[in-house]
């Protein structure tokens, strides 16, 4: 939904409002107890997905230790449109890399207008993970997330 730029509709004691997906999940900061933007008493009533971009393709890939009933070690969601071998539209989001669905504007910038090839995908993956701060036990995720994103980009632009 982060890659599709969904809009969350909520209703509560103070009435109705909309929250863009990018603002829905919160980073822990000093208030790790607050995970999302819902106010007390608010309920999600529905979710709007914008009309797909004509000619675009979307792919979601989830990598995990076992084949089912398991959270992602790394996942990637990509919406892309390719024209004349070049990327004309792209949205990139990743999972399993942070405390919220991680929209990567860095990867998008590295992809826009570039040829849809392996070298571009790898550069985008490097850009997406450039700011990653791994710990001892999850250091492998940096490389795994890159491979996950490269594969997803390959599938979405094929």
């Amino acid at each position: 939904m982060a890659a599709l730029e969904a809009v969350i509709h909520v209703e509560g004691p103070k009435g109705k409002r909309t929250i863009p997906i990018a603002e829905f999940h919160k980073l822990p900061g000093d208030t790790p107890n607050i995970e999302n933007a819902l106010e007390p008493g608010e309920l999600i009533t529905f979710v709007d997905l914008p009309k797909p971009i004509e000619g675009s393709k979307s792919v979601y890939l989830k990598l995990r230790d076992r084949a089912s009933y398991e959270f992602a070690l790394s996942s990637a969601a990509v919406v892309a449109k390719v024209e004349g071998g070049h990327i004309r539209y792209v949205r990139v989001a990743m999972g399993g890399v942070g405390t919220k669905p991680w929209r990567s504007h860095e990867a998008e910038a590295a992809l826009m207008g570039k040829p849809a090839d392996a070298a571009t995908f790898r550069k985008a993956a490097e850009a997406a993970l450039a700011g990653a701060k791994p710990r001892t036990d999850n250091a492998f995720k940096v490389e795994l997330a890159k491979r996950c994103l490269v594969r997803t980009l390959k599938l979405a632009t094929a």
């Binding site: 230790d65 076992r66 084949a67 089912s68 009933y69 398991e70």
Partner: peptide
């Protein structure tokens, strides 16, 4: 059973 993984049918 969410964190101690055993093989599922899909595996």
């Amino acid at each position: 059973f969410a964190d101690y993984l055993v093989a599922t049918c899909a595996d």
